[in-house]
Every structure is written in C-alpha cells, then in structure tokens.
Design a protein around this nucleic acid. Sequence first.
DNA 1: TTGAAAGCGATACCAG
DNA 2: CTGGTATCGCTTTCAA
Lengths: 343, 343
Amino acid sequence: MDDVAKAAGVSKAAVSKVIRDAYGVSPAMRERVEATIRELGYRPRIAARAMRGSSFSIGLEIPNFNSEFFTQVMQGAAARLAGTSYQLMIAPGLGELSGTPVLENLADRQVDGIIAISPEVSPEWLEELAQDVPIVLIGRHDRSKNYDTITNDDDAGTRLAMNHLLSLGHRRIAHLTLRMQSERRDAEPPHTIRRDTYESVAGDAGLEGLVAYCAADAGAAYEAAKELIEADPTITAIFAGNDSLAIDALRAVVDLGLTFEDVSVVGYDDIRMAGHPLISLTTVSQFGELMGQAAIDLLMERIRTGRTTPRHRELQPELRVRSSTQRAKARLGNVESGADAAF
Amino acid sequence: MDDVAKAAGVSKAAVSKVIRDAYGVSPAMRERVEATIRELGYRPRIAARAMRGSSFSIGLEIPNFNSEFFTQVMQGAAARLAGTSYQLMIAPGLGELSGTPVLENLADRQVDGIIAISPEVSPEWLEELAQDVPIVLIGRHDRSKNYDTITNDDDAGTRLAMNHLLSLGHRRIAHLTLRMQSERRDAEPPHTIRRDTYESVAGDAGLEGLVAYCAADAGAAYEAAKELIEADPTITAIFAGNDSLAIDALRAVVDLGLTFEDVSVVGYDDIRMAGHPLISLTTVSQFGELMGQAAIDLLMERIRTGRTTPRHRELQPELRVRSSTQRAKARLGNVESGADAAF
DNA sequence: TTGAAAGCGATACCAG
DNA sequence: CTGGTATCGCTTTCAA
C-alpha cells in the first residue's frame, strides 16, 4: 500500500479511502490511485484490514457433512455471497465436540458474522456471543433478543407428513430421529419439535408413539431402521427426522425384501436425491438454499445498517408426495417372505 | 494480551511465547501465564497473529456443490484438521468465474495453505502463486515444481470402467462428460484424461468414440443423457465422467422406460449414494476423503518443515461393480416400447 | 479534499 | 530465561 501511495504520489490514507470508497476523495485522485493499483497489481491484506475494520469473512457452522440439507444451506449462502468481497469460512462441528469451541473458533477469527445451524449450545451463551458479533441461527426456534433466527415451521411440516400417512391408512407409524446430545427445554432444535409434534399427532389419532433414536454417523440410521422393522412387524410406516435418515430407512426396507406398500417412508428436507426416480422419497421441503440466502441477507443487514433488534423468520414447509409412501397394507408375518416383492 | 501480561506480572513477549509454546520459557512462567489466560478467558486474535505469523486457516477451493465428490474431499480435509487450531475456509468457484479470482481471494486472506480441486487456471499462474503460499492441487496431473499434487490414476480408472463394459459385451459405449472451459494441453484435468483414455480404449477395441458434453449445473446431464439415448438407439452403455452425471443418466434411463439391460451406466467417484440399493451404480472409486486427508498432510508438512520440493501422490482407483451395468443386449427399436420394463 | 501520525494486537529480534 | 521495542499493513481521527 505504501508502494501504491508513493507511485501515485499520494498518501496511504488516500489509497485506503479509495479502496473502501469512503467519503472524501476527488474523482481525479480516485482515478489516479485506481490506475496505480491496477498497474502494480496491488491487493490489500485482509488480515491487516481485519485488525481495524472488517475481515470480510462470514463464519458458517455446520454440524457435519452427513446431511445434504447442510450442503443446501452452504450453497444458498455461498451463492448470495458471490460477487461480494466476502468469503465463507466453514466450520464443521466435528466429533464429540459440542458447538461451543467451533463458534469460538470462528469468533477468534473476527468473522463479521456467524451463521450456525442449530448448534448444541445454550441460549445464554449464544446471547452473550451475539453481543460481539452478528449471529443468525438456522433451525432452532429460540426467541433471542440478540441474534436472528431462521426457522422452518417444524410443527406444520410434521403435521403435513403425519396427516399424509394417516390419510393413507397407516396406523402403526414409527418415528426415526437423531439422538440429541442435550435436551434443554429452552433451546428448541428442529428434531425435538418434530418428535414432539409426532407424538402429539399420534396421540390425537389414538395411536401409540414409537420413537427410535440413532446416531448421526452414516450407517447408524440403516441399522436402527432395520431393527425397528424387524422387531415390530405391525409397523407400516416410518416418519424419519430428515432425508438422510429416510434414505437409510429406504435401504433397510429394500434390504429386508419389503416394498413401500409394506413399509412407507417419509423424510424431511427434500434434498436433491429425494426427487430421483429411483429414490422417489415422499418428504417435506424446507427450502435449505433459501434459508442459506436469507441468513446472509439478515447478517448483511446487521453488518451494513448496524441493526440490533432481532428478527425471526419462519418459512412454511411443503409436502412433496412421491412413491415411497403407499396406501397401508397389513404386513404382519411378511418380514422374511417377501424377498422378491421389492420390484 | 496486555491484560494477561499485566495480571501475570510478566511481559507481552512472555505471554506470546507461552501461547505459541515457543522455545525459552520456564515451566514456572508457563504455568503462571496459562493460569492467568484461563482466569481471564483470554483468546488471541487471529487477525493480529496473521499479520506477523500465521492465520491458522487453510483455503479450500471447490468448483461447485453439484458433486458429492467435493463434499468427500471437504470432509476428509475437515476431519484431518479437527483438533488442530486450523480452520477450513471454503471458497466455491461460483458462476462463470474461472478459478483465478477465487484463489486470489484466498491468498488475500493470508491462508497458510491452499487446496484446490482442479481449478481452471494456468500452470504458470499457479506456479507463481505457489511461491507465496503452499498449494496442493487435487485432480489435475500437472508436474509442477512449486506445488504438490494428489491425483487418482484416471487413465487406469477409465480402463477399469471401459474394460468392464467391454467384458459385458457392450460395443456402442457413449461417454458423457463435462464441458471444460479451457482446453490447455499443459494442464490436465481429470475429465480430459478420462475422455482421452475413453477414446483410446474405444479405438483399440475397434469402436467408435461417442462423446457428449454437458454443463455442470443440475439437470444438464439428465437432458444430455436423454438426448444421447433417444438419438442413437444402438447405444447400450454410458460411461459418465463422474457419479453425479451418472446418477442423472440413470434418471434418464428410467424416465425413458428402459432398464440397465438396455442401457448400462458406469460412473466415477463412488459417492455414498452409489452404494444405495435403489441406485446401485457401478463406478470407479477414487477415495475422495483420502484425497482430502492427504492434501492436508502435504500442506502441513510444507507448513511445519518448510519443505519446498514438490511431491506428487497418485492413488489407485478401484472398480465397484453394482447393478447399473448388465450384460449387453440389443436395444434397437426399443426406445418407446419398454415403458413397463424398468422393473 | 488531503495527509501525517497514532493505533490495532500480536510476533520476533536482541539486549540484558 | 526474560522483556523492551520495532514492526506487520491497514484504518482512522484530526489538522492543514
């Protein structure tokens, strides 16, 4: 920058102003400085800028790489950032770590804002962090006064899925969901809401709630679904907490030699593969890309306007009926005998 | 940091040394400083550290979010970085931008190293950038003297796929691949090598090369595959440049009412969905996660030891035979008549 | 409108 | 082994 200033015969301050196109530079000077910058191929160091101003980086915490829903959010956010001078810094919440160290890690890097996908941290802690850096929480239904949230109406989405199954005549509907590390009453992660609504809808319909929990790692859902189906031959449908779990459940159904008339499956998210004709998963779309975009928008608004009043956006989910859900048919005693019935 | 130094009754220099656990601190001092750090909840600012030392961030350029192969690489890299103080900074090469601005963007952030997945930039330019920051190139078979490369033996992989199809009796094998923006003879992106090898294997077998190009965006491959199959009813197999294209091709086959006995499909990558029983795609595994891990390892070695001699690792691909490839059977005149033959 | 100079929060050299 | 101090490259008052 010193070089540019000297070459253009102006001060560093002037160059700085041109770069940030700040107030108070004459067109003549702007032109000259810009020409020199091009000529010298000068590029400002973001680390230095970050010390005084902004780092032009946005942190994005994602729980893991197992669900394509997270990829959708990433994609939406990245697309919204394309063409700006901001960069995404992805922080996967790896291993057994709770979300806290991951978010701290981002904060240490002085990111200008943080998007977090329902991290397992306490609202109080987040509230505090949000006083230092703008935060948008995706998924969790907290009603914070310091950070924004973007949610999907999980209650409505679950009802869409459950009513669809009920209307197809299913009476023994199991729910396959993720085991949460913490069960706090004040933080409301989407999977908890879906489970609670599932139980409530089942109860209202006079059905027994059948909840199976599994870990998030690949393969766990397959095993859980298999066990579920084998252990209770009266089950005719599985409502899975997300598409990743649902697709694993499909695998279990097929591997057991059953069809979707024996065991129907509904997912949640509407990831790309759900629409593939060979998968054709009935699911609830929650528009992941849109959520990513909206998160960037909220963050940018806070960054640019300095807004501090929280905003809470809730998107309405939509049911996508495909062929993984079929009219219910008694399956009792069918488990081992239907090996050729899959197609 | 000043606060810590004062509270502990030592100098800033001492605190700095403790943080970096540099040479020359007595156990007593280390203990005292660490206690104070904990007590005050002090966290060093990475931006400030980046100005003199390292930013503890690794840049990862990925072409787009359309292929799960890129996710595999991300996951491998992220897993390798877990537990260290390094963070991944993901830079998607969005839109029509060539890779250059994306890599510059990362360099501007003083990342300690860059992993790039076959970006469309010239070797000369990369060579220059590599003198400033350690770079590992994934996929492209350049033989650089400044940056490392991790490749998969695309030639061997293609032969595995093609020989498999030939051994099943296929004689009219099309190749569906991505249209590259630039066709440089010196930079060798994987898709170009696969195509060249495809043509060479086809030629050696006395077959005609049938190459169809498509864009990378979702849906383009589906249309291209559909057109290919409809336009030439003698085609009995498609070798796709990657699994994403292959899965779109499967969609086309199914939508046209055909089976894999009419048109077999082989992919490349072995993404997770390829192994799902409902997809069951025959493909070539190139171990994306391993590549991500290995890239981090090479980068870290350069960062820690200051190595400057380039290293080029090549992984051996493996064929995964599943049910999307079947023994060849004449399809001529079948196109519109097989609607019920899919299952 | 322009520029000089004072930081920002760490690192690193070098003297004690 | 310890600490004073210059320094990194930019932003930001504040005078001129």
